[in-house]
Amino acid sequence: MKIIINNTSMIPVYEQLMDQIKQEIIGGGLKEGDALPSVRNLAGELRISALTVKKAYDKLEEDGFTVTVHGKGSYVAATDIPLALEARRKAVEEDFAEAVSKARSAGLEDDEIREILEILLEDT
C-alpha cells in the first residue's frame, strides 16, 4: 500500500488519507477483507496524529469502504467496486451540473462553457 501525504497542500491530511486508501481499494491494491494498518501504526509511520487517522478511518466506514471491528481493527468492506465507481461518477456528474448551472446564470454561452472545460483539462 502506498500513501504519500502532501504537507503543503490545502487539502486536509485526513482527506488525503481517505482518498488514497479509497484509490487502493478501488484499484484492487487492498482487497475485501484486508486489514488496514492499526491507527497508531499508520499514524507513527506517517508522522501524523492518531486522531487524524481515526477521522479518516471513521469516514471511510461511513462511506461504506471499510468495516471496523471493535478491538480488532478496520477491514476493507465487501464493496462492489463497480458500484463504488458508479457512485463517484454520479457525484462528479452532479458537480458538473452545478457548475453548468452557475455558468449559465452568470450569462455564459454553451460554447464559452466548453472552452473553459478545454482549458481546464489542458492545464491540470
Partner: peptide, 28 residues
Amino acid sequence: GLCDDIYMISDGKIILHEDTDVLLGKYG
C-alpha cells in the same frame, strides 16, 4: 507529528486548545 491535541500555554494560562488535525487542517 505525534500529538492528538495540543494545549498552548503562555504566562500560566491556556491560550489555545485544539486537535492537531484541526490546527494543521483548518488553520492557515
